[in-house]
Design a protein around this nucleic acid. Structure first.
Lengths: 139, 139
DNA sequence: ACAATTAGTTTGAATATCAAACAATCATCA
DNA sequence: TGATGATTGTTTGATATTCAAACTAATTGT
């Protein structure tokens, strides 16, 4: 196996590991995958309108309407209207939504610690530098 | 922001970049996400029975039945029966399925090259070592 | 004012998924 | 050898996810 194939294999093994970890975490909550994603985006970037949220989720506004309907029904988020433009609804996390976001973030930190625990301090430094570089330039 | 939070942020940015890249690649094909996953698993591990495939996909055998039905209808895979145990169906990629797998693998290699292009040779070495270690021990 | 654009919702259809019931086959052991 | 229990995969009924396209309401530009 050449070096490119080897790296490809390790990259996608890593990605798949992350994926299944993420899915199993979400399954412990009362949220669906799409609801959890919406909460993560709203928690990270703050309130935003439907169209922006749909963009972050990578789905249509129609799909986002359904997702936000369910979040609203379960009291994780609510629509707020804007005086300046009455077409726009700002989606905002409720108290319960913010708490769910904080819990999810805690799970993320746990996984990071799990990863760090198998690395030396020097490797930890390397990892963060590599990721910064890749995130900034490669995607 | 402390160092743990920083690494968590970079890790999940990396993961999300990978995710949306993967989804956009699948959308260019005539395959759904679950069909593409099944093909990737069959291409990587070779033919396997329904239950094993379901395990790899992380879904029930009922769900897998539907997925394989569609792959069979579109001529990407077929069920083969086994003399020794007539309950078992081995799922095998057809020619067309193998070609789809090869194409998908090529896309993966392209992404790897894209990532490598922003790294030095030394960083490339570091990345592969870190991933090997994490994949082997952390998940 | 009115035509074009924009934001979001609704609708209809395809796909995804699960749990539970089911059918076929195999294994055990009395 | 035959009855019972376990295993493999399919089917069923229900709910969730998603899209494209049609639609409504509001804003903007001319």
């Amino acid at each position: 196996m050449n070096s490119l194939d080897e790296l490809t294999h390790e990259l996608f093994t890593f990605f798949n590991g992350f994926s299944s970890w993420e899915n199993s975490v979400i399954k412990t909550s009362e949220l669906s995958v799409s609801e959890a994603h919406a909460i993560e985006i709203l928690g990270t970037h703050g309130q935003m309108k439907m169209k922006t949220l749909a963009g972050h989720l990578g789905v249509t506004t129609g799909t986002t309407t359904v997702t936000v309907d369910r979040l609203e029904k379960k009291d994780y988020a609510r629509r707020e209207s804007v005086k300046e433009d009455r077409r726009i609804h700002l989606i905002t996390l409720t108290q319960k939504g913010q708490q769910a976001f904080a819990e999810h973030h805690q799970y993320h930190s746990n996984l990071t610690e799990q990863i760090l625990s198998v690395l030396s301090n020097e490797e930890n430094e390397q990892l963060i530098n590599l990721l910064k570089k890749i995130n900034a330039e490669a995607f």
